[in-house]
């Protein structure tokens, strides 16, 4: 059993309820900014390494202003890594043309593109996680709805999220009670597994029915109305335009190379 993954969700949600200037920004503005950021990152040519570095300003600044613990973000980047790592690792194997020499060391194009993949991965993932940590799921979903996502889907995410903790607790209790009675083996046999999952499923369906009754008792008519509490103001506009200007300029001119040339005393 993956150790109570959903508990991490609760931690992210606590962060989402902090009150900082970043948290107070309109959720839509933050989503759009992060989307532009991700597109900017992905649009770099595949061998780009140094050009990506200045973009780290964005997640770092958000983490700083939003009072988000750095560890909380980067602890999550690693477990998500394997697939990108797996696919990326083939680049050094396949693309072996030397591309960059550092004294006696020759780096192949594959290694460069591999490094680039890892950088992109870290950038996009940390930006996405930071977005959630500085907004909170309830504001994200309200924002999604305002951006035109069908309200049924926004509500679906909220419900899933709400009952994640309830069903997660239930599954852990059931899993433990099975483990206590099984003879030391950590893995369940398919038979036991299916009974466990089946019971969990039945409990979930029953719960859904009870929730439905509770909803109906309070006048539910098929439509869930979400409260929208924020309206974008001039702060939001500055945030959005400022960062987009930054992304465009970084994408266009590589400040890293300028700094590098200045430090190593070379001409541009």
């Amino acid at each position: 059993m993956k150790t109570m993954r959903y508990l991490e969700v609760g931690q992210m949600d606590d962060l989402g309820r902090l009150d900082t200037p970043l948290h107070r920004l309109d959720a839509r503005i933050k989503m759009v900014t992060v989307a532009v950021f991700i597109i900017a990152v992905m649009s770099f040519p595949r061998y780009e390494v140094s050009g990506l570095m200045p973009l780290f300003v964005f997640p770092f600044a958000l983490i700083g202003v939003g009072k988000i613990p750095l560890g909380c973000i980067y602890k999550k980047v690693l477990p998500a890594l394997p697939f990108a790592l797996f696919v990326g690792l083939f680049n050094p194997l396949i693309d072996r043309d030397p591309m960059l020499t550092l004294g006696p060391l020759a780096l192949s194009g594959g290694w460069l593109s591999f490094a680039s993949i890892l950088l992109r991965f870290t950038l996009t993932v940390s930006a996405a996680l930071t977005l959630v940590a500085c907004t909170g799921i309830h504001r994200l979903c309200a924002g999604l709805e305002q951006l035109g996502v069908p309200s049924l889907f926004a509500v679906q995410i909220l419900f899933l999220y709400r009952y994640l903790f309830v069903i997660g607790d239930e599954s852990i209790r059931m899993f433990r009670s099975v483990q206590i009675r099984s003879t030391g083996s950590k893995k369940l046999s398919l038979r036991v597994y299916c009974a466990l999952i089946g019971h969990l499923l039945i409990r979930s369906i029953d719960r859904a029915q009870r929730i439905y009754r509770a909803m109906v008792s309070r006048g539910f008519d098929g439509q869930i109305r979400l409260l929208h509490r924020t309206q974008p103001g001039w702060r939001d506009a500055i945030f959005l335009l400022g960062w987009i200007a930054f992304f465009i300029s970084v994408r266009h001119r590589n400040p890293a190379r300028i700094v590098g040339c200045w430090l190593t005393g070379e001409g541009l």
């Binding site: 799921i137 009754r213 008792s217």
Partner: peptide, 14 residues
């Protein structure tokens, strides 16, 4: 006004 046995069923909003 109906108050259900398990408050988790009744408190479903964020």
């Amino acid at each position: 006004g109906m108050v259900f046995q398990d408050p988790d069923d009744q408190l479903f909003m964020p």
